[in-house]
Simulated assay, not measured.
Amino acid sequence: MGEAIKGRGSTGWLPGRFAKTVPEAFDDGWHARQDEGEADLLPRTQVTEERARSIISRNSSPDISFSQSVNPYRGCEHGCSYCFARPTHSYLDLSPGLDFETRLYAKTNAVELLRAELAKPGYRVSPITLGINTDAYQPLERRMQLTRRLIEVFAETRHPFTLITKNALIERDLDLLAPLAAQGLVHVALSITSLDNRLSARLEPRASAPLARLRAMKALSDAGVPVGVMFAPAIPWVNDAHLEGVLEAARQAGAGSAGYVLLRLPHEVAPLFRDWLQTHVPDRAAHVMSTVQQLRGGKDYDSRFGSRMRGQGVYADLLERRFALASKRLGFDRSGWPQLDCSRFVAPRKPSPQGELF
């Protein structure tokens, strides 16, 4: 069993599934000097600026409502213990554990790539989701402002887009989002897994506190931005009891729509989350994983379309029923996220070597 690391969701370094060599830690006493404080031993965040080759990712999954997404960052400092995107760091020969939340990449050419993509003659307009793989408003965004600059491109071209985040930093961009909302070009979803600050701090250590997310939701709603709530992920015997409370608090804060996703444990996420359970809720760890496997046909994860987001079996049916009843009682829009206007799009002008004369 690992030990909790302050401010981090992972309890240690886990090799990726493609790793050819695996380092082994050995304590030689070098860091045992008396003059060193605890902060000196904590893993620090490292940011690498990179030039991406493409920026719009496309999918045809029947489980999700969008076909295009943009991720300005790789890795995520929020450190959510359950994050389904952790295995993507394996492609970089980095650990899906601590590396995923401490070794981050910022796509500094994201704006120019987006403009180029939208300017292509054959481009077909479809809402783009910002930050679906890693949070577009993670702490790094406060300094880099890549997400804000991407939104400025959407505003310039009147391109519809959606946002989903766990960070109240989104309030910073209300000056951009409110006018776009008035044109039917944007929808925002705040992901809230619990109203319990202590549980939230363990599950997602560097995301905004639940109350801060609710305040951001209220600010968005008051400014006319359509906002929804995502209870994601629903984790058996860890946060599932908070479902109705989260939906009710979100409705009071102005959310008009709601959704949920069951815990997903692809690839390295399964052993990482097992370790998290043993570290933080050892009394329930076996029961949680037993239920997860009942939901996934006896495995830690089932990637099949149609079941990967909801699971199967008695527990899955009960959770779906609870969500439906709560949504109906609270008056959430049962048709799902609002439709965005794709008719306003104006392709960006390609940069001219002579510059802008008029």
Rank of each mutant, 00 (worst) to 15 (best):
K6A: 14
F18Y: 15
E24V: 14
F26Y: 11
L41I: 07
L41C: 04
E49T: 02
R51Y: 10
I55V: 14
S60G: 13
S60E: 07
Q68N: 08
E77P: 01
A85Q: 05
L92F: 14
D93N: 15
D93T: 11
T102N: 13
T102Q: 06
A116K: 08
R124G: 06
I132A: 13
P139V: 03
L140A: 04
I151Y: 08
A155L: 07
T157A: 11
E171D: 12
G184C: 07
H187M: 03
A189R: 13
S191P: 07
S191F: 05
R198Y: 07
S208Q: 02
L214A: 06
A216D: 03
A219W: 02
D222A: 12
G224P: 05
V227W: 04
V229C: 04
M230H: 15
M230S: 15
E244Y: 00
V246M: 04
V246H: 05
L247G: 04
L262M: 15
H267G: 00
V269K: 07
V269C: 10
V281P: 00
P282W: 05
R284P: 01
T291V: 14
Q294S: 12
G298Q: 02
G311H: 04
L319F: 02
F323W: 11
A324V: 14
C342V: 10
C342T: 13
R344V: 00
P351I: 13
P351N: 11
P353K: 02
G355N: 08
